[in-house]
Design a binder for these strands. Structure first.
Length: 887
RNA sequence: GGGCGCUUAGCUCAGUUGGUUAGAGCGUCUGGUUUACACCCAGAAGGUCAUAGGUUCGACUCCUAUAGCGCCCACCA
């Protein structure tokens, strides 16, 4: 027999093992069934599972299990990401700490990469076991890693293809350089933090210019003003003047450009094109010189003369001091608040630098899409605009388009070691340098590979399809990319994928890049639907940060305490796509209570089967059904349909809520209670429990599977059961609706009246003795159930027997006081309110029916139904007015 | 500066073609050891659906404005 309380810990690991070993997660590429594929967004192979992963895994697993049970060939492909900068950063820091090596890069590329590989292998194992803990039913036999040989091959193939199409180019551009990590980062990887600094005003010839960064000003020889700025009307564009500057006299040139903001300070500024993106653009526009002031380590170069070699942080004060001595310092504003750019990985300050980098041209029109030659940007827009790809929630369409509109060329090279090395080789002989761009290294001596690696999103952008190519083809270079796709059954069967489920925070990083890479390379969309989940926040609505264990909930601890099912439910119910949700202990506990409720209801039902010696599934006889049976089957049919619809539309939370309510408030609270003391219909009980287990299985896979294993006659594992369809036939639940109405009414009566009242009602009421203990201060009216139920229920004699309640008329909801049990004044008040409401309702209905648009457009049956409703309501109103008079 | 949201019970949140009396969980209060479950059962209180206009027979829902909160992007010499 089952324990009195469900102890998730006791069962979950064993169940997972059983599923995995049975092969239930494995998708069959030769299956005739329609494919349904989800590529798991690969967690970074750097650490441990956090709540973001947990919500992702819960949602995806629900979708997959549902489709698998519905008879799709469901593939849920797991994997991990090498997370270039993030991982290298972590390992470099680790080496520093553990081996006390100041600059681990002195160990050399090979050694550092080996360290990273070891670290990654270790993290991957952690991640794998944690993904299992969530109950994730992914196909481990197809697990991939962004650094797999095949994925590396794909990366190279895409790079070469793009290069040949002229989409990849190399150029000198200003990049976001991180002197700490010694790499550049993409625009999207930057964060801005507020900082207080001093703001200095210096004399610059006849101008006064402001800056927070005097240390960059050595090479400034252009002063920019707005062309319409009246203060500087007397100067011509291109005019030069001599002036004294940090290290002596210079010749400065006046530039008129709209980039200068006349509202800001004096309206005049000097520019440092090498170290500022805006200044760089101004310089490009006017063909100005660009000079490097700061090296890649963050130290001043020889242009700084006496300050050369000094770290910028140190130099600032000394430069100001010098300028002050020269009488060029006008004033200093303390505590000037501005924002500075930092690298979101590693939090190092960003120092813009001009560097030679590889870029993807997003505007060049060379991509064939639907018979039109378009740019990458245009294809990205087109697939979403045409709804080939649907984004949930829809409003993210706008955000997506807005981002694309502002998209600039994508800088894909990174100066780090960990990642896919750029497939470009150089050979220098004398003055000339040969360049080879290819999937493989060129033949011959003297070639050196580009040391840079690719942005991590370049490889994960190909995730949906590169993971489906047969890995055995990786070193067969006689095959082109097209050949490989064609010769990979998995790709043929499972691509495009159906859903890409991920957090909205990586819509641009990743989702957009996948669309770009896949449409370009494969010629299809990567997925039909993008489901974006929100952030999980604390109870107070704050972001959970890893560094603060007080605010941060660890999914593994939750699983340990309440079970994976409870965690899954708590992350899915009460949240909708795109919206952040809050998670806290009581919430999870509430859903743990639900798993226990289900457990105990099952225990009760299984106990009944045991008493009746049931070893096989009892037959469901739809001919002899009690009122309660009819009612629950009617409800169950509706729940089956609605759950399925909600899940098909990816309204996961809605499905969860529906099932929660049905199981607890209908199946347990009414059906099981009513069945006590009655002769139970074993067939119906069995059918209900079985259906409930199947319906709930996608959401709470463990507890349902465990109960399933105890269900007599249940074949195989629940994970492989068929999703239910509604039973044929109509079930009339009105009798129980009435019962519920009456019971509720009686329950809310004064205790001493309850038994008397109950006895007057000819309905099966399950336990009279409950009524003795109800609160004594309750309103003393009997609220009878809906008339629609009454009219259908019971014999005439029974209706008569209901004594004071006999005033029940067809088709109306009615409230009747039981003689002597009721407070006349209160009843009057209530009736008046009812009449007011009803009047309003009638007005509404009348309006609706007089609305031409409604009458013309709505299906006839609905219009007819509305007319009937109106008639009923008018009749009822009459009765109530009559009743009020009689009081 | 450009864009996107949110505001519903004490708290956390659901709520789509506009339609009867706006729902749930938690919390609070009342009563209950009822053999499936105290991780439970029965009940109660609690709402001008942010505010003001508009459209409509009818608005939580559609439109406009305002306020507060938040997010994304750009910029900050």
């Amino acid at each position: 027999m089952l324990d009195k309380q469900y102890d998730a810990k006791k069962y979950e690991d064993g169940i997972y093992k059983m599923w995995e070993e049975s092969g239930a997660f494995k998708a069959d590429v030769n299956s005739e069934k329609e494919a349904f594929t989800i590529s798991m967004p690969p967690p970074n192979a750097t650490g441990t599972l956090h709540l973001g992963h947990a919500v992702m895994l819960a949602l995806e697993d629900i979708m997959i299990r549902h489709r698998r049970m519905k008879g799709y060939e469901a593939l849920y492909l797991p994997g991990t990401d090498h997370a270039a900068i993030a991982t290298e950063n972590v390992v470099i820091r680790k080496i520093k700490e553990e081996k006390k090596i100041k600059d681990p890069r002195t160990l050399g590329r090979e050694a550092v990469i080996q360290e990273i590989k070891d670290f990654v292998a270790n993290s991957q194992n952690t991640i794998r076991s944690q993904v299992r803990k969530m109950g994730t039913s992914c196909d481990w036999s197809r697990e991939r890693y962004t650094m797999d040989e095949m994925l590396n091959r794909c990366v190279n193939e895409v790079f070469v293809k793009m290069y040949k199409d002229g989409l990849i180019y190399r150029g000198h551009r200003i990049v976001n350089w991180d002197p700490n990590l010694k790499t550049n980062v993409s625009d999207d990887e930057m964060d801005y933090v507020e900082k207080k600094d001093s703001f200095y005003w210096f004399k610059y010839g006849p101008f006064t210019i402001g800056t927070v960064r005097p240390e960059t000003k050595f090479g400034d020889k252009y002063v920019v003003v707005h062309p319409d700025d009246e203060r500087y009307q007397q100067y011509e564009h291109g005019e030069t003047f001599e002036c004294e500057w940090i290290n002596g006299p210079i010749t400065a040139t006046i530039i008129k450009d709209k980039a200068a903001d006349p509202e800001f300070g004096t309206g005049a500024m000097t520019i440092t094109p090498w170290h500022s993106a805006v200044d760089f653009e101004i310089a490009e526009r006017h063909n100005l010189d660009k000079e490097q002031i700061i090296d890649l380590e963050g130290n001043l170069l020889s242009v700084a003369d006496e300050f050369a070699g000094m770290p910028i942080t140190e130099a600032r004060e000394k430069i100001v001091e010098k300028l002050d001595k020269k009488g060029l310092l006008v004033k200093v504003e303390e505590n000037y608040v501005h924002k500075v750019a930092i690298n979101s990985r590693g939090k190092g300050m960003i120092e813009p630098q001009i560097r030679e980098q590889w870029f993807i041209d997003v505007n060049k029109k060379v991509v064939q899409w639907k018979g039109v030659t378009r740019s990458l940007k245009e294809v990205m827009q087109e697939v979403v605009r045409s709804e080939e790809i649907k984004i949930l929630p829809e409003r993210f369409d706008k955000i997506y388009f807005n981002w694309i509109d502002n998209l600039r060329d994508w800088c894909i090279s990174r100066q780090i070691w960990w990642g896919h090395q750029i497939p470009v080789w150089y050979k220098t002989e004398g003055d000339s340098t040969d360049m080879h761009v290819g999937v493989q290294a060129p033949e011959g001596e003297g070639w050196e590979r580009d040391p840079d690696t690719l942005d991590t999103w370049f490889s994960s952008g190909s995730w949906t399809w590169s993971t489906l190519i047969d890995p055995n083809l990786a070193d067969d270079y006689s095959l082109s990319l097209e050949d490989m796709l064609e010769n990979s059954p998995d790709f043929q069967k499972f691509h495009p994928t159906q859903v890409l489920e991920t957090g909205y925070d990586i819509l641009f990083f990743w989702v957009a890049r996948m669309i770009l890479m896949t449409t370009y390379t494969v010629g299809t969309i990567p997925f039909d639907t993008v489901y974006l989940h929100g952030l999980i926040r604390t109870r107070e609505g704050k972001k959970m940060s890893k560094s603060d264990p007080k605010t941060c909930i660890d999914p593994l601890e939750v699983i340990e305490k309440y079970g994976a099912d409870a965690l899954r439910m708590s992350m899915v119910i009460g949240s909708s796509p795109g919206n952040d949700s809050r998670l806290y202990d009581e919430k999870i506990k509430g859903y743990r209570n639900f798993t226990n409720k289900l457990w105990n209801a099952s225990r009760f039902v299984l106990g009944i089967f045991e008493e009746n010696g049931i070893a096989e599934a009892p037959k469901l006889d739809l001919k002899n059904l009690s009122d309660a049976d009819q009612w629950i089957l009617d409800k169950l049919n509706k729940v089956v349909v609605e759950t399925d619809n909600s899940l098909m539309e990816y309204k996961i939370g809605e499905a969860g809520q529906l099932l929660y309510d049905f199981v607890w408030n209908e199946f347990c609270d009414w059906y099981l209670e009513l069945s006590k003391g009655e002769k139970q219909n074993l067939g119906v009980l069995y059918h209900c429990l079985k259906t409930i287990l199947i319906l709930l299985h996608p959401i709470t896979p463990f507890v349902t599977e465990q109960i399933w294993s105890q269900l007599p006659g249940a074949e195989g594992m629940l994970i492989q059961a068929d999703f239910p369809t509604p039973l044929e036939g109509q079930f009339d639940g009105s009798a129980v609706e009435l019962t519920i109405g009456i019971v509720s009414a009686i329950r809310s009566m004064r205790a001493e009246n309850q038994i008397e009242a109950a006895q007057k009602i000819p309905v099966t009421i399950f336990a009279y003795d409950h009524f003795e203990t109800v609160d004594r201060n309750k309103p003393d009216i009997i609220r009878l159930a809906r008339l629609s139920a009454l009219s259908l229920y019971g014999t005439d004699e029974e209706k008569k027997l209901s004594g004071a309640a006999a005033d029940v008329v067809n088709g109306m909801e009615i409230y009747i006081p039981l003689e002597g049990l009721v407070d006349t004044e209160k009843e009057k008040e209530r009736l008046q309110k009812e009449i007011a409401n009803l009047t309003k309702y009638i007005a509404g209905l009348t309006g609706k029916l007089s609305n031409k648009k409604f009458v013309q457009n709505a299906p006839e049956a609905i219009v007819e139904a509305e007319k009937n409703k109106l008639e009923e309501a008018e009749e009822k109103l009459g009765k109530m007015e009559e009743q009020l008079k009689n009081l």
